[in-house]
Amino acid sequence: MLKVISLLAAVIFWGLLSLTLPPDIFPGPLETVKALWGEIAGGRVGTDLVMTMLRVVGGLVLALLLGVPVGVLMGLNRRAEAVLDVWVMIGLTVPSLCYAIMAFMWFGLNEGAAIVAIAVTAAPSITINIWEGVKNVDTKLVAMARVFEAPRSTIVRRVLMPQIYPYVMASARFGLGIIWKITVLVELIGRPNGVGFKLFYWYQLADMRQVLAWTLLFTIIMLLIELAILKPIERRIFAWRPEVAV
């Protein structure tokens, strides 16, 4: 309920704020929705949206595949931690634009390069999250499992992994947040379609209605993914956790 009220308040605030500038420069919510509806009705949304979503999902999967194992390794092994932590910091520092330029220059202007650039940008943040998570693993539970003669594979699967899942889940969620921003940037400089491409296209035509319409579209889609897919998954997996009352 509070969520709905805060969203409504934001829309009203947007509407009021837009009155301070001419609608060509700062369109209000109504005009933006109208522009968006025009795009949707005209069938000009599908391809770009699907391409962007594919890049987001591809980038996220690859980022998790890169980031999670490195994070686990760093959490479990002190030597790996000592060697890799500098590299994670470097990876985190390099701007995503550099990764995108490098990827397109080295691998060509193709989907593979785009996804690699997206994944490499997001992976270090995921690694840091998982690394912290693994360091927080409750070793007392591991000792318990060893007393009950649990083989190493069982300890990893049934004692360690369940403790790491929440961090993987958190990484996936904020990874998604980072990734869609990078994806738009990557599309802007190196792809012939996608939301980022469209944003840049309308920006060059100085059409603020369309720029805001596409921003709104993507924001709504991401919210839906969060509320309709990620939240329910999280609720299912972590049903055992007590509610925190503060």
């Binding site: 007392k140 539970l141 000792a143 318990m144 499992a145 009950f148 003669e149 049934r158 369940p162």
Partner: peptide, 26 residues
Amino acid sequence: YLFQEPRLLPWLTAEGNLDFALSSCR
């Protein structure tokens, strides 16, 4: 072994915790 703390696996039910020990000990 009975530790100072229960050291139960929080994501398993009471029965799940017993099953964990039983299967670990074969």
